[in-house]
Simulated scan of single mutants.
Amino acid sequence: MTDQKLDHGTLLWIGGRDHREFRAAYEYCEARAAQIAYRPHMQSAIDRSARGVRLIVLCRQNDSSAAQYAMRKILRRHRTAQAVAIRGSLEIASGRRPYQNLNEPLLPEWTDLPTIEFHQWDVQLPQRLRRCGWEEMPAEPATSIAVIAANAMAQQTLLSVASLHQVPTAAFRSAQQAQLAGFDQIWWDETATAGKPWGALLQSAPSATHRHTWITSDQSLDHHQLAKAAGVENIVIKPGSVARLLPNKLQRQAEPLEQATTNNRTWPAAARQAA
């Protein structure tokens, strides 16, 4: 949850800012935070204390027994700071969160640490920068939404979400310029984009006024970069919360829909994560 008042504290960044899974998040924060203190690892964060820390971002490629004790020291030193960990692909693949060792107790400073998966940082991290002097401006509200999905189940799921915007919506199995001309936002489901180059896809919607969102289970950073280079503005990873397709003021209205999609294989609720 964000603070009501904009703060101008220091962001303490711990871990690999040059790693390809964390670089974009670091560059984003560096360009916006009032002040950023970079420490390459936990021990350096302990040895070189930063001042005025209001937010701690920890990059985790893997966990360890020693890490939770180091995190306890860091959090006790910066008692007024919030902390979050960005999980890299190795830790995600290990299936462990947090470090599991039956011979050692788990510290609450580790088990209660909020986490963000590396491919979702741009959804969850920006709102936390209020503590460091930057506030994300709300996106322009949608005036109309076109859903492009190759099967009826995917179409219905996304149309249900789009209906909460209370603007004209329509669904198509494929993109054609004449169909999309009047729409403000275009939501591309992976069923309609699989195996197709983004350059060719977006030629069917060439208007500069279109805002494109890709809804996909593809977590490849290379594929995300290709999509964004072609003109895709937002990438929403599924399984995940459908609320991420909505502005903040509408996200609470998505809660009943979250329950309704429990058995929908297009957006599996069993693996949903909070927005």
Score class of each variant (00 low, 15 high):
89 S>F: 05
89 S>Q: 13
89 S>E: 12
89 S>C: 11
90 L>G: 06
90 L>V: 10
90 L>M: 11
91 E>H: 03
93 A>Q: 14
94 S>F: 06
95 G>M: 13
96 R>L: 13
96 R>P: 03
96 R>H: 13
96 R>C: 14
97 R>V: 01
97 R>I: 00
97 R>P: 01
97 R>Q: 10
100 Q>Y: 08
101 N>M: 02
101 N>H: 08
101 N>P: 01
101 N>D: 13
101 N>Y: 04
101 N>K: 02
102 L>I: 06
102 L>F: 12
103 N>L: 08
104 E>M: 03
105 P>T: 04
105 P>V: 05
106 L>C: 14
106 L>F: 05
107 L>N: 03
107 L>K: 00
107 L>G: 05
108 P>M: 01
108 P>D: 14
109 E>N: 06
110 W>D: 15
111 T>W: 11
112 D>R: 15
112 D>L: 14
113 L>T: 09
113 L>A: 13
116 I>V: 05
116 I>A: 02
117 E>Y: 05
117 E>K: 05
117 E>H: 07
118 F>W: 11
119 H>F: 12
121 W>A: 09
121 W>S: 10
122 D>Q: 14
123 V>M: 05
123 V>I: 09
124 Q>M: 02
125 L>Y: 09
126 P>M: 04
128 R>G: 03
131 R>I: 13
131 R>E: 15
131 R>D: 15
132 C>L: 11
132 C>H: 10
132 C>E: 07
132 C>I: 14
132 C>F: 04
133 G>V: 14
133 G>P: 10
133 G>C: 14
134 W>A: 03
134 W>D: 00
135 E>Y: 04
136 E>Y: 02
136 E>A: 11
136 E>P: 01
137 M>S: 13
137 M>Y: 04
137 M>P: 03
138 P>R: 05
139 A>M: 12
140 E>F: 08
141 P>W: 00
141 P>V: 12
143 T>L: 12
144 S>D: 01
144 S>F: 06
145 I>P: 04
145 I>A: 03
146 A>N: 12
146 A>F: 04
147 V>M: 08
147 V>A: 06
147 V>W: 00
147 V>R: 01
149 A>K: 02
149 A>S: 13
150 A>E: 00
150 A>F: 06
153 M>S: 05
154 A>Q: 09
155 Q>Y: 05
155 Q>I: 03
155 Q>T: 06
156 Q>W: 01
156 Q>P: 00
156 Q>C: 03
157 T>Y: 00
